[in-house]
Design a protein around this nucleic acid. Structure first.
Length: 105
DNA sequence: CAACTGACTCACT
DNA sequence: TAGTGAGCCAGTT
């Protein structure tokens, strides 16, 4: 736990770090995981979602604040509902990154 | 071991 | 504004 071996492990940790009421982008997670260009890998890893409930993947959106259409829990609709539940306003299928984006510390 | 896929992003037309 | 192409990374087959 002190030394996450796989990139995926680091991705999970980064996603879990996102505070409630905030969102993060795949790119941001990739950077936190150690690879700024691994945005694709992040999406793939989250899609596997080995720990639904522990990994708030619904707080992870694309770089433009767009929600994912292939959400593992039920689709874009479920994704939107979860964001609304976190007090995050969703415009159509997008969120205001300028307002909800978690900039880390 | 090599190739393909995929919740991505950026740039150009 | 919208659509297409190329580049990058990790995991799976």
């Amino acid at each position: 736990m002190s030394q996450p071996s796989t990139f995926s492990q680091r991705v999970y940790e980064a996603v879990k770090r996102i505070p409630k009421g905030s969102v993060s982008t795949y790119k941001r997670i990739a950077i936190l995981a150690g690879s700024p260009n691994a945005s694709r890998a992040v999406g793939n890893i989250l899609h596997q979602n080995p720990f639904p409930g522990e990994i708030p993947c619904h707080r992870v959106v694309s770089s433009s604040g767009r929600l994912t259409a292939a959400f593992a829990f039920g689709g874009l609709d479920a994704h939107k509902e979860m964001l609304l539940r976190e007090n995050i306003e969703v415009y159509g299928n997008k969120v205001n990154l300028n307002k909800y984006l978690y900039r880390g510390e």
